[in-house]
Write a protein that binds this DNA or RNA. Structure first.
Length: 502
RNA sequence: GCCCCCAUCGUCUAGAGGCCUAGGACGCCACCCUUUCAAGGUGGAGAUCAGGGGUUCGAAUCCCCUUGGGGGCACCA
């Protein structure tokens, strides 16, 4: 690489951390790690109207959660900014944009523009009617000093426009190869500073990337067509250009750019549903990139050791939630007991608040259940439906569900009664899976029932569900008294229910 | 409308001229395991490599065209 590798993620706090931003951050992070470079976080908050502290916090928290630690970045929660190019918040860097703008103005590479919003809107409408691409007509490009003075006198606010000029801009994108774009396709002279004096994205990004010595700009493909503007600005400012790498977009199922309307895009939503960071990182890394081998379950460190731009895909990638869920299951199964208990706790607390459970299980109780639930969790959020029946006073019983498909209500009542007696005969001290199974199997054999049918009736009676962890582990977790109590209640429910076929 | 980018199973992808009668994974189907659900195992369906021209002894791989898709064209980022 040419000199030190310095890359950045530059989110704007105008919304919660987006899946696409997270992936761009991840690719930058992996690239930095792979090359022993520096990963920088910069907040692009110049859209004051849409930016908020809440979004900023969501973004920083999300990046933290993913494990993407930045080497340089803004001050956070009382902590000082980290890195030699502070501040890392654009609204705190206004002086440097003003200075850069002054420089461009002084060299006549930019000029004040007094056009009103109405004038610009009218231009755009006319262009559209004439089937021309929208562009600035250059009304203020060649104003003489007297004309400028007149407009200043009118009290018209002046935006600053950068002269785009003529010619072709070419660059060698690290993933796309050579890209050439004629400046005539850039929309005319570019506003770099608003009438109110605040700088615009295309300007600040260049000023900061230069100031922060960014070596590689790795970002989404949606910026590919904007890159010539940036290059022109780098040149006008007389600073070296970084290298560019444009990543394929993450797509909705209909192959349009992933959006909130059509997909779930906020990282916080995935966290809330119980996706684990390892799975999200693993999945996102493999969306648009591959190792070139058949490896696919990879940790952040393993990804960092393998990352290369050469294997970045050019075409967009549809976000496939099913594959994410599969990976999530893979990673949940790899977690240690302590780790899994810790990660399950917030979800159990949420279930408690939602009334799914009535009591918070302690760590030992959860630990005891781990062997039967760990491989049954597609997401952490499903823990409540898996073991919730253990932490409520009574489960809801549907008489129809109580009756196994090959049985009728009478047989079911009979079966549950007999099972209750058989289980009652097992003493408190012997209440273990190995002790519970033989008597029930013997009972089924004796009565000519399929063991599975009897087990299903018991399962629904004590859990209210047809899909549960293994029955005997379930009964042990439930305990003798509650098992017998729930069987009694199920029998009563069946007795009260009208004799309809279940 | 103009400019730019892209194009291998439904989806994510391997493939950098012969190893490809195209490999893996998710999903789907079947079977095995099994008290349900999972997990796991085995097998299967699924891509004339968008289409058409070239180049070459030989093309999914190189070139051109067509088609399709996407992105960008703000005093948003």
């Amino acid at each position: 690489m040419n000199g030190d590798v310095r890359v950045r993620i530059a989110p704007s706090p105008t919304g919660p951390l987006h899946i696409g931003t997270a992936r761009t951050a991840l690719f930058n992070y992996l690239f930095a790690r792979r090359h022993g470079g520096t990963f920088i976080l910069r907040l692009e908050d110049t859209d004051v109207a849409r930016s908020s502290i809440a979004y900023e916090k969501d973004i920083l928290d999300g990046l933290h959660w993913l494990g993407l630690r930045w080497d340089e970045g803004p001050e956070v929660a009382g902590q000082a900014a980290r890195g030699p190019y502070a501040p890392y918040r654009q609204m705190e860097r206004l002086a440097s944009y003003a200075e850069a703008a002054r420089q461009l103005l002084a060299e006549d590479k930019a000029y004040p523009c007094y056009c009103t919003a109405d004038e610009l809107a009218a231009d755009r409408a006319a262009q559209q009617a004439a089937h021309e691409p929208p562009h600035y007509v250059g009304r203020c490009a060649a104003l003489i000093p007297a004309e400028r003075a007149a407009r200043e006198l009118e009290g018209r606010p002046a935006a600053i426009r950068f002269r785009i000029g003529e010619g072709t801009v070419a660059f060698d994108d690290l993933v796309r190869g050579r890209v050439e774009i004629d400046t005539s396709a850039l929309g005319g002279d570019l506003v770099i500073v608003r009438g109110d004096g605040t700088p615009l994205y295309h300007f600040t990004v260049v000023v900061d990337d230069a100031a922060m010595r960014i070596s590689h700009v790795i970002r989404g493909e949606d910026h590919l067509s904007n890159t010539p503007k940036h290059i022109l600005l780098f040149r006008a400012l007389g600073v070296p250009e970084p290298l560019f790498a444009h990543l394929p977009l993450i797509l909705n199922p209909d192959r349009t750019k992933m959006s909130k309307r059509k997909s779930q895009t906020a990282i916080s939503d995935y966290i809330a549903q119980g996706f684990v960071r390892e799975a999200l990182v693993n999945y996102l890394a493999l969306l648009g990139w591959s190792t070139g081998t058949e490896e696919e379950i990879l940790s952040l460190d393993e990804l960092a050791a393998r990352f290369d731009v050469e294997h970045v895909q050019k075409g967009g990638a549809v976000f496939d939630r099913e594959r994410l869920e599969w990976l999530n299951g893979q990673w949940i199964r790899k977690l240690s007991a302590d780790e899994l208990i810790d990660r399950l706790r917030p979800f159990l607390e949420a279930d408690l608040h939602a009334g799914v459970i009535e009591r918070m299980p302690d760590d030992d109780e959860v630990c005891a259940l781990l062997p039967v639930i760990q491989e049954r969790l597609p997401t952490l959020g499903t823990v409540g439906e898996l073991i919730g029946f253990l932490f409520v006073e009574a489960v809801a019983l549907d008489p129809a569900m109580l009756v196994p498909k090959r049985w009728d209500p009478t047989t079911t009542r009979d079966g549950l009664g007999a099972a209750r007696d058989a289980l009652a005969a097992v003493g408190e001290v012997s209440w273990e899976a190995d002790e519970l199974e033989p008597p029930l199997r013997a009972l089924a054999l004796e009565r000519g029932w399929k063991a599975g049918d009897l087990f299903m009736a018991i399962r629904v009676a004590v859990t209210g569900r047809t899909a549960t962890p293994p029955l005997f582990d379930t009964l042990v977790a439930l305990g003798r008294d509650r098992t017998l109590g729930r069987l009694d209640r199920a029998i009563a429910v069946l007795a009260e229910a009208p004799e309809v076929v279940g």
